[in-house]
C-alpha cells in the first residue's frame, strides 16, 4: 500500500537527490540540516563511509583466512591411542563414505560452497557498482540479500567441533581435540559477515537515480 511518487520512466526520487535526511534506523524524518537523528541519535549519512574500501579489505582478509581454514585440520580424533586429523573437506568425504549423504551435503554446502559463494558474490557486487551502466539492479540486490542472509550459516562446522570436543573426552579410549582451522574458519565467517555488512547496497542503484 505505497504510493509511488515517481514512475519508473522518469528519474526516481531518492533521498540523495532530494537532500532528505530520513533516518535509516528509526525512519524518523529529520530537518534537512540535521547531522544526528533527532529521534534515535544515529549519525546521519547518505552513504556508508568508504564502503567499497572496507568491503574489499575485509574480502582480502577472508580470502587469506580461507587458506589455513581448509589446509589445517579442524579437529583431531584420538581413537584407542591412534590420532587422526580431519580437515573440513576431509570430514565431508568421510561422512559421504559412511553413507550419511544429507549431513555430508549440509556440511559441504555450509562450509565449502557458502564461503566461496559469498566471497565471489561480494567481489562481483564490488565490480558491478563500479560500472557506469547498471542493468538488472533488482537481481544484484537479490544476490546481496541472499549473501547477507546465508552468511551466518557457515558457522555450523565450528559449532559441530565445539560440541564434539565437549562431548567426546574419554582419554585414550576416544577423544576429540579442536584444530587450528576452527579459529581460521570462525574468522573467515566473521570477516565475510562484516564485508557484507559494510557493503552499501545503495551503490547498486546509484546510476539509475
Amino acid at each position: 500500500m505505497i504510493e509511488h511518487e515517481s514512475s519508473h520512466q522518469s528519474k526516481a526520487k531518492t533521498a540523495l537527490s532530494q537532500y532528505q535526511r530520513n533516518c535509516e534506523l528509526c525512519y524518523f524524518q529529520n530537518p534537512s540540516d540535521a547531522c544526528i537523528c533527532e529521534c534515535c541519535g544515529k549519525k546521519l549519512s547518505q552513504r556508508k563511509k568508504s564502503s567499497l574500501q572496507h568491503t574489499i579489505a575485509l574480502l582480502i582478509t577472508s580470502i587469506i583466512l580461507y587458506i589455513p581454514a581448509n589446509l589445517l585440520p579442524i579437529m583431531y580424533t584420538n581413537y584407542l591411542g591412534e590420532i587422526t586429523e580431519s580437515t573440513i573437506v576431509g570430514g565431508v568425504v568421510t561422512l559421504w563414505g559412511q553413507g550419511s549423504y544429507p549431513v555430508a551435503l549440509i556440511i559441504f554446502v555450509a562450509s565449502v560452497l557458502v564461503p566461496i559463494g559469498k566471497i565471489l558474490a561480494l567481489i562481483w557486487l564490488c565490480y558491478f557498482v563500479k560500472q557506469t551502466k547498471k542493468r538488472s539492479s533488482e537481481k544484484n540486490q537479490q544476490l546481496y540479500r541472499v549473501t547477507e542472509f546465508i552468511g551466518r550459516w557457515s558457522m555450523v562446522d565450528v559449532f559441530v567441533v565445539a560440541i564434539l570436543v565437549a562431548l567426546i573426552q574419554m582419554g585414550n579410549l576416544m577423544s576429540v581435540h579442536p584444530g587450528e582451522a576452527a579459529i581460521a574458519f570462525a574468522g573467515l565467517v566473521i570477516t565475510t559477515m562484516l564485508a557484507a555488512n559494510t557493503f552499501d547496497s545503495k551503490l547498486i542503484w546509484q546510476s539509475k537515480d
Binding site: K13, T14, Q20, N22, S137, Q141, S201, W205, D209
Partner: peptide, 8 residues
C-alpha cells in the same frame, strides 16, 4: 534502507 528510494 537498501536502495535509497523515497517512499511516501
Amino acid at each position: 534502507h537498501e536502495c535509497d528510494l523515497l517512499v511516501a
